[in-house]
């Protein structure tokens, strides 16, 4: 299977910021997912355009990790969200 170049958040996925993290809601799948504050921070940072390096640097600062670990954390998050349908491959990717 070809690996996508970019992922995006489908229209039927929305979210709510809560004190304890971030709640993802899927309007077609009738399901939810709670993201912890750490994962929620990653999701929130994805919603704003920043160079990837800066994003990873911010994640490393927020989570108190080395850059490599932050990059791995970001990858893990993306993989899990892609697998569960919270993100989908961009068209043409």
């Amino acid at each position: 299977m070809k690996k996508p170049k970019a992922l995006r958040c489908p229209e039927h996925i929305s979210w709510i910021v809560d004190c304890g993290g971030l709640l993802l809601l899927d309007f077609t799948g009738n399901r939810t997912k709670i993201l912890s504050c750490s994962e929620g921070a990653v999701w929130d940072l994805l919603t704003r355009n920043r160079p990837e390096k800066l994003r990873i640097f911010m994640i490393s600062v927020i989570l108190g990790m080395e850059m490599d670990d932050a990059a791995a954390f970001l990858s893990d998050c993306l993989e899990s969200w892609l697998r569960d349908g919270w993100l989908i491959p961009c068209e043409g990717a």
Partner: peptide, 17 residues
């Protein structure tokens, strides 16, 4: 200085949790 604000807010939330 949004990078700073967002970093502190998210770091603060993580620390609080």
């Amino acid at each position: 200085a949004r990078d700073v604000v967002e970093t502190v807010v998210h770091r603060g939330r993580v620390l609080a949790a």
